[in-house]
Design a protein around this nucleic acid. Structure first.
Length: 205
DNA sequence: TTTCCGATCCCCT
DNA sequence: GGGGATCGGAAAA
């Protein structure tokens, strides 16, 4: 169970901590929504390896999404971390996030300023509200694939929340996001999990 | 409020 | 050659 656990990055860039509030499960090769369905080993070989290892992929040519390999070796499966509640290193997250999509903003606003006075800064609790944003906030890209997230010595790792007793939560489940291509049988499975009512959970689109 | 679009690039078919 | 485990801003309503 990853919900409620802490995602930690600690190195010369500082210490960033986020509490996992939303995940999605991807089963083995038979799951038509999972990257494990591809026969090619190049991209997803790590998914068949030891659990607890990071699998990071690029979506839409722009966003890196962080997964945790979950199945026993030989059975490719993973959990996508879809959203995190920023707890520590918020300024670093915001700065790291700003770099992603910068080129696009420069194209939209060549003069370097936003035209709309109504646009407000993103609140802290929404910094990592989505899988692409989790990768952006933690500065994780595909080169991080293979990192052992369960090794306490890793720069990027998972930790139990020492304050878990103070933060009880209920879990909601629903269909996974953005996998309509997989067909009803797989797209309809309620394999998206979130902390009920948490403001850092990604919005339905 | 909801819907739509472009950005950007890697991998599979 | 084509579309995707996304996102933010603009247009539509």
């Amino acid at each position: 169970m990853l919900l409620g656990a802490l995602l930690v990055r600690e190195d010369e860039t500082g210490r960033r901590v986020g509490r996992i509030v939303e995940t999605e499960a991807y089963a083995g090769p038979e799951d038509l929504a999972s990257h494990a369905r591809f026969t090619s080993r190049a991209r997803n070989a790590v998914m068949s390896g030891r659990p607890g290892i990071a699998y990071v992929y690029l979506v839409y040519g722009m966003y890196d999404c962080l997964n945790v390999v979950t199945g026993p070796p030989g059975r490719a499966s993973a959990v996508l971390i879809r959203a995190v509640e920023p707890l520590e290193g918020v300024a670093t997250m915001r700065d790291s996030r700003r770099r992603v999509g910068r080129r696009r903003r420069e194209r939209s606003y060549p003069d370097g300023r936003c035209r709309h006075a109504t646009s407000r800064p993103v609140p802290d609790r929404h910094l990592a509200r989505g899988p692409g944003l989790v990768g952006a906030c933690f500065g994780v890209d595909r080169s991080w694939t293979g990192t052992d997230l369960c090794d306490p010595a890793s720069v990027l790792r998972l930790e139990a929340d020492p304050r878990a007793d103070d933060r009880p939560f209920a879990v909601t489940e629903g269909p996974r996001v953005g996998v309509r291509y997989a067909g009803l049988e797989w797209a309809g499975r309620p394999w998206r999990f979130a902390i009920d009512g948490h403001p850092s959970v990604s919005r339905a689109r």
